[in-house]
């Protein structure tokens, strides 16, 4: 009914950097036509030169992105996006500072949109105080637990030792969830999103330059088709050092079509894609992980299924 317009929920308490992240996404979308649902236009700060049209509840940008206010409710906003679903590659929903992002994700799934991931931003400086707040402490902790990927933001505002202590605390609150550390919400789009649409060019690893100090990219390839069971094993083999995996899988049981593989944190999906056509019928995945994690998580996952990897 709605096609396959993937959606991402961006959550996190007030001040964690959600709006900064959205502004970055909107100004750097690089060909991805993003429909962004925000709580309040007041905080979205889009470069005026990018604004093509401002009409009531929506701001259209020159590169095909659209910003839509949630002021009339989720149903109205999503309906206006879905009415022209073909114009977009991806939907992003900004959860309010006190919302449970998992609940927002459920709303999206009501409209049969595939969930690309729940990203939760964390204010490195304030999170411990927020977590003990009498009003919102439990809400803040639920937000952490609901994330597929945690972005500990504003790390420039804390000391090295505080940050190290914070890492331990965060992993205690959300065991197994990968954590990215960032300043000014600066996280590459390749990490934030899976494939928006097959229309978007598959970006070769070599062309992925971001933040060499923080991220590392691998490509994983298999000569032979994989069984579903092998894919399942692979998916659960990546540890918390891996943020995102995406690519095409050649599946034994469905030889004519490629399967689109998406993974963020522990959440992964495998969906039938288009026919292989003339392209090489082999599984090829891009893995993005933490630089310090080294090649081990990918090695381990690849070894289970006889894959090969190149460190990009």
């Amino acid at each position: 009914m709605t096609g396959h317009l993937p959606f991402t929920v961006i959550g996190g308490y007030l001040g964690a950097g959600k709006t900064t992240l959205l502004n970055q996404i909107l100004t750097q979308a690089a060909g991805r036509r993003m429909a962004v649902l925000v709580n309040d236009f007041g905080s979205v700060n889009i470069d005026a030169s990018l604004i093509r049209d401002h009409d009531g509840d929506t701001i259209a940008l020159t590169d095909g992105c659209l910003c839509c206010s949630l002021v009339n409710g989720f149903a109205a906003a999503i309906a206006s996006i879905l009415a022209r679903a073909g114009d977009f590659d991806h939907v992003i929903i900004e959860a309010s500072g006190v919302a449970d992002p998992a609940k927002i994700a459920q709303y999206g799934q009501m409209y049969e949109l595939p969930l690309d991931g729940i990203l939760v931003l964390v204010d490195a400086e304030q999170i411990r105080t927020q977590a003990t707040d009498g009003y919102v402490g439990d809400t803040v902790l639920r937000q952490l637990a609901q994330a597929d990927l945690l972005i500990v933001n504003k790390t420039d505002l804390v000391t090295t030792s505080d940050l190290s202590e914070l890492r331990g605390w965060v992993s205690g609150q959300a065991p197994g969830t990968p954590v990215i550390e960032a300043r000014h919400s600066d996280v590459p789009l390749e990490v934030l999103f899976g494939y928006a649409h097959e229309r978007v060019a598959f970006r070769p690893a070599a062309a992925f330059p971001p933040h060499p100090e923080a991220f590392r990219t691998w490509t994983l390839e298999w000569e032979r088709p994989l069984s579903l069971e092998e894919v399942e094993r692979l998916a659960s083999g990546f540890g918390e050092g891996v943020y995102r995996v995406k690519g095409f899988v050649a599946l034994e049981s469905d030889p004519d079509r490629r399967q689109v593989y998406q993974q963020v944190g522990a959440r992964w999906t495998l969906e039938p894609g288009e026919s292989w056509g003339t392209s090489d019928r082999r599984t090829k995945l891009i893995v993005i992980g933490r630089a310090e994690a080294g090649p081990d998580p990918v090695d381990a996952a690849a070894a289970m299924t006889g894959g090969q990897h190149d460190l990009a």
């Binding site: 308490y13 007030l14 006190v98 919102v136 809400t139």
Partner: peptide, 17 residues
Amino acid sequence: PGGETNWRGQPLFPPEV
């Protein structure tokens, strides 16, 4: 409402707001 234990609800907006 979602089966949560120890549920005490949530504010619609953060107290700062």
